[in-house]
Design a protein around this nucleic acid. Structure first.
Lengths: 338, 338
DNA sequence: GTGAAAGCGCTAACAT
DNA sequence: ATGTTAGCGCTTTCAC
């Protein structure tokens, strides 16, 4: 039998109302009773029942975290780190986060995550690119929603992003500073707004340095950003005769694919070709050479997302606040002076 | 304002008790009312409130899923797949699964996952190797607990495992059938019971084939099963003069590390050396050659774990039922006749 | 500054 | 076969 508020009240010789007030730091409670009640709570190791509280407040104390199955299962722990951040911040705010994956082929009529159907969450965080059909279905439930690392094509939602433009810009500038002029951009999944922004940043840096933008140096497609995809795209660049001396990759997985291709073709990295990755998933220390990359504060993005969704839950305002997290260039061994 | 049972009752012209009975398929309800109530439930898109239900039944409807942070963040989506399986089966049983990570350096006194402190779960699933200090702290809460892919060193708990011995046995037999005699076992993390079992299976197969077991062909340590570790261990084997012609790896990550080492040293796989992985995480289609591996039913293990913990929750029995999931040899291109 | 009491939405025992 | 009702543990308003 779990300890209830009654047990605490009895032991502290106060009413349950007083205990409740103490817990919530509200009301005018004398310092004496406050201390006494606190002590009893600790001694008894009392934790209020979620259900009872939920019933009384009509809040669930849960926030839902939605991402596509392939994002959840993919090799690089990008969204897993974001999730970890949400978990951390949720704990600070006495909230639980419920994880649900949806198919990346979600279509209208498919079942939504249970916590939305059952109204078992007070808000939701959506991480990464998700099908628009999902968003359409979700709208009906009118839940406070925050997007992480994704901007839906329509509608104006609050979200937390990383500074992709700036990231690509400093990555490109880094290569330019090293003397590179023929810098390739290998994207993949250009329909993902983040990747599109990275391309923008790349172009911006090139223009700033008065380097012409050669479309033959830009390879994008609409496939998942994988090693495989990087490998395939690298083929296009280095089979041709554009003579790229360096590459900005859409993300680290892509970069590793490019690296692999160059190894197979006996190009030396960084002696012949420099490579900059993106995301800094730092997952694979075996990568040789260690990848210069743009570091994204994944955990912090999760934290920010929770704070944002909490403020939405409180204010019931429909603000579309956007948070752009700063990124950082991490120089390792895959880039070198030309 | 969410729909409540009252709304349903009013609209269906029955009492709330009847609605409740219909929902639980219990009691003797006439087919007529049953149908009518069902229809109203659907029309209104009614979902019972978790909190109210929890309060009434003194159940939370949650089951906790615990794993260490590094298992959650690691490259290969092994436990993530197990988690996906639990999510799936939980949904079938109208349960939620709450994910919590703990540090792999958990020590006594550290905070337990919130859902155990707050008694916000009816049972827990523990995936992978966790510190025994965690288990000790957990005991006090007396929650129905199931282990997945791990057998705690002391105590007798229900768990769901994969058939590691059999897996290593068929992997080794496969190599023997291909004519290999000098078969190395590259383990790492030998303190993990699963890896120890795999070594046992390897030895068993060798003995069965009347091949002597050469300890110089066996490399284990107590480090995490990573590519890096595989690389390091491969060095030990192939730097020496034992002349191994094939390798059984502790898992796929290890196998990929071995592969990398062999590539770097210009050994051809599978022409010079055959490699069998373990787990079949099939994560990296870029691995060249594609890895022969032992396939483990990860999703199914999650499903079984949920079923097991549910039966524990129901029966309140202290059985220590064990479920061993069958494994399968998946032959790809990394093994070849000698 | 503290207590009494109503009510949140459901389940389950009991009545009818 | 269906309805009545007492609680489950908490929050919150109102009274004192």
């Amino acid at each position: 039998m779990p300890i209830t508020i009654k047990d605490v009240a009895k032991k502290a010789k106060v009413s349950i109302a007083t205990v409740s007030l103490v817990i919530h730091n509200s009301g005018r409670i004398s310092n004496d009773t406050r201390k006494r009640v606190r002590k009893v709570i600790n001694n008894l190791n009392y934790h209020p029942s979620r259900s009872a509280r939920g019933l009384a407040t009509r809040k669930t104390g849960n926030i839902g975290f939605i991402l596509t199955e392939d994002h959840f299962l993919k090799t690089e722990p990008f969204y897993t780190k974001v999730f970890l951040g949400t978990e951390f911040e949720a704990r600070m705010n006495d909230l639980y986060v419920l994880l649900a994956t949806v198919s990346s082929k979600f279509k209208e009529g498919d079942a939504l995550p249970r916590f939305v159907l059952e109204q078992n969450s007070d808000g939701i965080i959506i991480a990464g690119k998700v099908p628009t059909s999902l968003l359409k279905e979700l709208e009906a439930y009118n839940l406070p929603t925050v997007f992480v690392d994704y901007t839906p094509p329509s509608g104006d939602y609050p979200n937390v992003l990383s500074d992709n433009i700036q990231g690509a810009l400093i990555a490109t500038k880094h290569l330019i500073d090293l003397g590179h002029k023929k810098i390739a951009f290998i994207g993949g999944e250009i329909s993902h707004p983040s990747i599109a922004e990275r391309l923008t940043g790349y172009k911006l840096a090139m223009e700033k340095a008065n380097l012409s933008i050669n479309n033959n140096l830009i390879v994008t497609n609409d496939e998942y950003l994988s090693r495989q995809n990087g490998y395939t795209c690298a083929k296009v660049i280095f089979n041709g005769k554009v003579g790229a001396t360096s590459v900005i990759a859409g993300n680290d997985a892509t970069a590793i694919g490019v690296l692999q291709y160059l190894k197979d073709k006996e190009h030396k990295v960084p002696d012949n070709v420099s490579i900059v990755g993106f995301d800094d998933v730092e997952t694979d220390l075996l990568v040789d050479p260690p990848l210069t990359s743009i570091k994204i504060p994944k955990i912090d993005m999760g934290i920010e997302a929770v704070q944002l969704v909490i403020s939405l839950m409180k204010n019931k305002t429909k603000s579309a606040k956007k948070i752009i997290m700063p990124v950082e260039l991490v120089i390792r061994k895959s880039t070198k002076k030309i």
